[in-house]
């Protein structure tokens, strides 16, 4: 596939108001950082969700990798308190 017209992916982080950290909100496509910021404004702050935007190319994010031989989800087995059914709620309370 020719990627001449394929824009690269950027991750978008938004600070919704002062006092809070930037939070990952999603990604988008843009050819460069100026447009990535502008696109982020148009795509992710249409309802005044933010006052500050960070963008970075997705490719420059290094992520920890769950090891396949020891899947990330095994520790869940001995933590039954994480399951909703671990807690007894009287029937008359209904769905919780």
């Amino acid at each position: 596939m020719s990627d001449k017209d394929n824009w690269k992916i950027w991750e978008v982080f938004i600070r919704s108001r002062n006092g809070l950290s930037h939070k990952h909100v999603g990604s988008l496509h843009a050819p460069d950082e100026e447009m990535a910021i502008k696109n982020a404004r148009d795509v992710y702050t249409r309802r005044s969700e933010g006052i500050s935007i960070w963008v970075c190319p997705s490719e420059s994010i290094t992520a920890s990798s769950p090891d396949e031989s020891e899947p990330l989800f095994t520790p869940a087995d001995d933590k039954v308190y994480r399951h909703p059914t671990f807690y007894e709620i009287p029937d008359e309370i209904g769905h919780m």
Partner: peptide, 11 residues
Amino acid sequence: PVLEQDIALSN
């Protein structure tokens, strides 16, 4: 031409 710009021009 691309979703991001469709949104931008609509704005």
